[in-house]
Design a protein around this nucleic acid. Structure first.
Lengths: 219, 219, 219, 219
DNA sequence: TATGAATGAGGATTCATTCAT
DNA sequence: TATGAATGAATCCTCATTCAT
């Protein structure tokens, strides 16, 4: 009847997982959304398709658990980012500062990708969407946050003499772009070998960032 | 989303420019489409918006000149790719084989981007779209073609000893990804300086591909 | 919009207040409904909004206590009408027959309105709703009952020579309409002074109904 | 896909009736809307029902000709108001200032109503709708404009000694409310005789507004 | 009794496309 | 060729209601 502000005595928004049932449903929907986006693309990932994949009998239930499309997509990104950090973080912290950490960052990303290709593809797809008004991706914060983090990592490394001189944000941009692009390939090309590509990318960027000629790079 | 083979009373599809008016109209629409996609994103670039920007009074005219949405988008990609090749090709051929050509490839790409940001953004956006059925980007051929071309370039270079050993397709992938990502930034961030980034990226990848330690970066 | 006869496991409909808790809950919901309708209008007064205002955590509880939307709205009207009669009735009975009672009827209505604006607005709003099938307001009985009562009052007055000749139902209609309209204004216009308007309306209709030229207004 | 601002190279909004076809369709839709609102009420007058009554095969066509629900409803109100003014205006101008004009105003309104009951009911219904946010009727301007006009009429009359002293806005409110209420009755009650009621109301308010005791009311 | 979750119908609106002018 | 009007499928979302707990 009207397009007024919401009014709901129900979960919807960021219902910090009040009940366990609700949390399970949200996860279920988020996972279905990830799979759907990865399969048909964000542009075709309608509530109907997501509900269908989740085995739900109605799209209304998605609207019930999420405040709207953006809320769902935010949850998708948050989920993948969280999973990724849980996977990658420890590995990086276990690596030695400098080239080793850089290598680990890249290879861990691609390993995670190998195990979770849908998530990576879905997020990359989501990030490519721009709002018609603001012209910016509403979900870009995760992306830029990741890149800035990487940039900081290089800056510290440079201070410690672990890396040569270069613009750290450009380096971060290039690495992140390569990883994301690899995500697409991972799904599009059956032959794509993420582990191999990870190693190659790692050596590539280690060469580019190394403080001095990398003599015996990989071996 | 799918629809084919109809009794076509008139030009439509690839009507290789029946008349000159027809050709002009197609160009006009393609340019409006590029600007629109660059501005609001492929997901919101409806025929209505494109027609509006082109100063057309009806969306029907787009359907008249193009066999469908895909046809128009193909034309968009083809146009940008052609423009890009016209800009970049000569510069590369003028450069010396090896590192210099690589530098030129990257910087020329970003120079082109600086002069034609809409095109780059539009194409990058278009390429992110996947067909719901095939799961593949219907426009990806241009992309993969470009990458394979770049990969071939490295392979030849390696044969001639101009580049060190690395997986050429991974290197090509990384470079292309960095350039495309830069395209996004170029539009999203007002401070983004494509020329500077081009130079940085060029040196970055030259270091990564160089046959031996790059001592003096630019010369 | 239509639905009836179901196996009712519990109170629901007119369960004349099985328990006291039940009665309290119903009152609570009815009051929330009145406030909600008055605020956002009958068209936007969804169960969700009403439940929210009532501090309930589920809309299900409304469905539990009321047989349906109509049942709730009926309760709303009944409640306001009852409150109104409790307020106005004694005042009228205390007044002298004829013009004085008429004055009292009108001013008491507007006094009640001044003290209970939500109720009046809500009811006026509710009465404006018509059922899609029957084309009649399902809640109109209260309205027409009120008007007929007023009409009877005038008829008796005319018999006793207290009022001049006029169509009593038209007079009743006009008075009731003026009072209801005042209700809307009361909420819509911050400056609206129900007491003043009540007095003005009272004199207006006394002039219109008086048996002979009204010389001194209040006496 | 997105809820962005419109983009349309087509009529939609107030397309001041560019083409004649468009104007005809708009009229057709407006008339269907009036009939539908009058029949099932504003709350149930969905685009689907209106399209059905108008013999349209799709609700999309309504969205095509009107910028949205509000635009359509505005057109409904504007149409009825225009028709009403065209009917009533000349009659009032032909009447003599003072009581005669007042009588004419009321009777002409009810005559118009007798000939066009749907319009009156529809508008009254529309005006009863409040926006959930602003709490005000988005279409109320016509209403208040009409009342203010009437109020001015009385004020001038009072200056010229044609009417006795009373609050002119309260009088205007009462008259307008009575007329609108009559509109409802006109549809709800088969026996309702608008001409008779018009005459009764006219005399009623003439008595209430007359400068001195009205001896021979109608003659 | 109360709750949260689920349901499915129905809401307006946008979209690419078609077709008679 | 170009236009405006029409189409109907598809979009997200809200709603009152039901039901197991």
């Amino acid at each position: 009847m009207s397009n007024d502000r919401r009014a709901e005595p129900t979960p919807r928004g960021r219902g910090r997982g009040r009940s366990i049932t609700e949390w399970v449903r949200r996860q279920q929907i988020v996972e279905a959304a990830i799979a759907t986006i990865a399969e048909v693309g964000i542009g075709s990932a309608s509530f109907a398709r997501i509900a269908q994949r989740a085995g739900l009998s109605s799209t209304g239930i998605i609207s019930y658990h999420f405040a709207g499309r953006s809320d769902l997509i935010n949850a998708v990104v948050a989920r993948v980012v969280a999973d990724g950090q849980a996977y990658i973080g420890p590995r990086i912290r276990a690596a030695e500062p400098g080239a080793d950490q850089l290598r680990t960052y890249i290879t861990a990303n691609l390993e995670f990708m190998a195990e979770n290709p849908d998530g990576i593809v879905a997020v990359a797809d989501v990030l490519s969407v721009r709002d018609a008004d603001t012209q910016k991706s509403p979900y870009a914060e995760f992306h830029t946050a990741g890149i800035e983090h990487l940039s900081d990592f290089f800056q510290e490394g440079q201070k410690k003499g672990l890396f040569c001189e270069f613009d750290t944000s450009v380096m971060a941009l290039a690495i992140r772009a390569a990883i994301d692009e690899a995500g697409y390939r991972c799904r599009a090309e059956p032959d794509f070998d993420p582990i191999m590509v990870g190693n190659e990318l790692a050596e590539l960027f280690v060469r580019a960032a190394a403080v001095e000629p990398v003599t015996g790079s990989g071996g």
